[in-house]
Design a protein around this nucleic acid. Structure first.
Lengths: 223, 223
DNA sequence: ACATATTAATAGTATTACTATCATATATTT
DNA sequence: AAATATATGATAGTAATACTATTAATATGT
């Protein structure tokens, strides 16, 4: 992908102080992505992050009120990025079938770095989405947070792809279930392929995840 | 389901002292299921459990070395129970197609109480599986724990259903992906329908989750 | 009645996830 | 250049968590 130096705007409810507004904020985001990956979300703490970036714990709290809030921010950044890619990659395609194939590929393929966004490593962020995002929404506060729009970007991606499905088959009953199933499913498969391979049929270099879900969707929506 | 007073045997690696061997142990299991449901796994602690059952925190540690270990125990109990139901409900059915339909229904339908197992509330346990099981395996210790057999029962269920899929279509390439996708997918849909309904197409009393996944599987495996 | 196993009570530890306060450095305005 | 505002840093403190260790009390089996 080209180096466009784009900017993704994040809902201000998702931070206390905009991390993109300062060098420290950007370091918080980029380093937290690396550390959540290496330590796992449980063992990751603002104290450790502070030590790593040579800054103070209390300064980090000025950007995010908790590590949960930081995780929600990262998840939203990711889905805004995916939404941008979705719109970009399906632009000017008139045949709905082709749009859908592009969309499924985007949602199920392995993520590659996007140099249009300097301080975020999309490959590592994708790993966080796969391993940690369930921890963000499987909380007792989900309904309150949902009302505040914490999961809006994810829902918007599902809606966009559902719309493509309905373009192909307007009477298909379950477009949202289909799309959320393949998104979550593909993430599970990538996790399982590394840690619980007997739950998958992944083979090196054969692109089975994309093939499986593409085929699944196309068969599902034929009437 | 009949009241058979059955017993599910759990791998001894999953507890320090068998909770079924004493009244305290059974109370730990049954009360923890209720409390994890009401508090969520994060806010649930052995101290609170001790207070609730009128016992001491240190006594609980004699049965489970951590609350994570308890969660893994519960997950294994659940999947052993599902495996038993799967074998029971598909016994004596010769037509593979019918076996598969039964299996998918079992894996995607809403769970009902099973009075064959006195001190476990399967309805609540199912809710724990839906909301908390990702937290059990999305840890840094997954590979070590997988080696110790912590996820064996789940994998066995997936394998059994995959075998039925292969009976119907021996050349189907992705039976494990298909089965794990529908299991995880159905759980997600039940969670989403309560908290993020725009990600689903669930309608009251229309059994859409079972219908969607049954249809998805049947269409996927036709060659 | 006595040994043994089980459970309870109490205390203690390192760490976490913060909050609060105050000092200092840096940037902006006048 | 001085005054002011803003951002960051340093330090300390708190309640709770997830345990461990030790000792005492109680129940059970022979």
């Amino acid at each position: 992908m080209e180096n466009l130096q784009l900017h993704i705007t994040i809902n201000p409810e998702l931070y206390t102080k905009d991390p993109e507004s300062s060098e420290l904020g950007q370091k918080i985001v980029s380093t937290s992505i690396a550390m959540i990956n290496s330590l796992g979300f449980e063992a990751f703490t603002f104290r450790k992050l502070g030590v790593q970036i040579g800054s103070n714990e209390s300064s980090i709290y000025r950007y995010f009120e908790s590590k949960h809030a930081l995780l929600v921010y990262l998840i939203n950044w990711y889905w805004s990025w995916i939404e941008y890619k979705l719109v970009f990659e399906t632009a000017n395609i008139t045949i709905a079938q082709d749009k859908l194939t592009k969309a499924i590929t985007l949602l199920t393929e392995e993520v590659e770095e996007d140099n249009s966004f300097t301080f975020i490593n999309e490959v590592l962020l994708n790993k966080i989405i796969i391993s940690e995002s369930a921890k963000a929404y499987h909380t007792k506060d989900i309904d309150k947070e949902n009302e505040k729009g914490f999961y809006k970007t994810y829902k918007r991606v599902v809606q966009r792809v559902s719309d493509i499905v309905l373009e192909i088959n307007p009477s298909f009953e379950f477009p949202h279930m289909l799309v959320s199933t393949i998104i979550e499913g593909a993430h599970h498969q990538r996790f399982f392929s590394k840690h619980l391979p007997s739950l998958t049929d992944v083979e090196e270099g054969k692109n089975n995840i994309v093939r499986f879900y593409s085929d699944l969707v196309l068969k599902a929506i034929v009437s």
